[in-house]
Amino acid sequence: MTSPVLPPLTAPVAVFDAGIGSYAAVDRIHRAFPEQDIVYLADRASFPYGGKSLPELRTTIERTLDHLEALDPAPSAIVVASNVPSVTVLDETVTGRRMPVVRVVPPVREALEKAGEYGEVAVLGVTSLVTSDALVRYVDRESGPGRSARVRLRDASALVELVESGAFLFDPEGTLRTVAEYVARLRGEHPAVRVATLSSTHLPWLRPFLEEAAPDLDFLDPGDSVIAEIAPHTRAGSGSVVGLVTETPDYPADRFREMLARIGVEIPLVPVTIA
């Protein structure tokens, strides 16, 4: 494990995921707490989380948490920005941690309330999330008696790829067509859906396209709950955002730097290795 030399930071909040999607959470935290220092880790060497077995994902998340806990200065809290590990393995990996770990999970309870007595909810996520037994158990727990039948688990991997590839930036017309086709299929199969949760870190980047394709649906961002959860752990600093990135020959740091530039983000980006 290599520990990067960080600039002077004050009790930074750490945010991590395997892709660019989690920068949306970084931006949300930065806007809510402009003086908060943030360490943003993009673990590209582990991309995609959704393609791993549960034992592999558990090991990956444990190593990443270990790495972030060892930073100097140590984070005041760590945000696991991805829904997949938050739902499937995080319960087993946070025991005994020295600092608070905040997860991002589908806001099923809120979505059902917004959907009304007869409306349905679509949880949009990657394949490994929406086909997992852990998500089924989570939905049952969050829905309450007799309500889980109104929750539809929908694979949105094709939409996630629009963000990961950068298509939503350089081909907005094509992106809107793909999103509109996806929404049309969703509504054709589940016409009672009134609310959808954007349960992949990538999907909030597509919210404008989703709202244009389906202006009568409510789209909920699971990341919204992060603000309230980390508020007790925030400290006034310089408002700096420092990026860390792991890399492989297929996912070099320079390519990730280019992806950030496409969305107008320029931050210090330090390559690291998590062993």
Rank of each mutant, 00 (worst) to 15 (best):
R235P: 01
H202V: 03
A214T: 07
A196T: 02
D216K: 14
F209E: 00
L198R: 07
W205V: 03
L217D: 01
L217E: 00
A228V: 10
F219S: 01
S225N: 13
E212G: 04
L210E: 00
V195T: 03
L206C: 02
R235W: 11
D221I: 07
E212K: 12
S225P: 02
T234Q: 13
W205T: 01
P208N: 08
L210T: 03
E211R: 15
G223W: 02
H233E: 02
F209T: 10
L206P: 02
D221M: 14
I227V: 12
F209C: 05
R235D: 03
V195R: 06
S238D: 10
S238K: 15
F209K: 08
G237T: 13
E229N: 15
S240I: 09
P232R: 15
A214M: 13
V241C: 07
L198F: 05
A228W: 08
V193L: 11
P215Y: 14
L203F: 08
H233P: 02
R194H: 09
F219N: 01
A213H: 11
V195E: 00
S240D: 10
H202E: 01
H233M: 02
S200P: 04
H233N: 04
A231Q: 10
L206A: 06
A196K: 14
P222D: 08
R207M: 04
D216G: 12
G237Y: 05
H233F: 05
D221T: 12
P215A: 11
R207L: 05
E211W: 10
D218H: 15
S199G: 02
S199C: 04
S200C: 06
L210D: 03
P208K: 13
H202I: 03
L210M: 09
P222S: 14
D224H: 14
P215W: 11
G223F: 04
T201C: 03
S200V: 01
R194F: 06
A213W: 05
T234H: 13
D224T: 11
I227D: 00
S225R: 15
L220F: 01
S225D: 09
S200I: 01
L220Q: 04
E211T: 14
V241S: 08
V241F: 06
A214D: 02
V241L: 09
D221V: 04
S200R: 07
G239N: 06
L210R: 11
A228P: 03
L198K: 05
H202L: 07
E211F: 09
L210H: 06
T234S: 12
L220N: 07
E229L: 15
G223V: 00
S200N: 08
P222F: 06
A236W: 10
I230C: 09
G223D: 00
P232N: 10
R194T: 03
S238M: 12
W205P: 00
T197Y: 11
R207S: 06
A213Q: 05
A214Q: 04
P215S: 08
D224W: 11
L220E: 06
E229K: 15
E229D: 10
L203R: 08
A236G: 05
P208Q: 12
D221N: 12
L220R: 11
D218Y: 13
F219M: 07
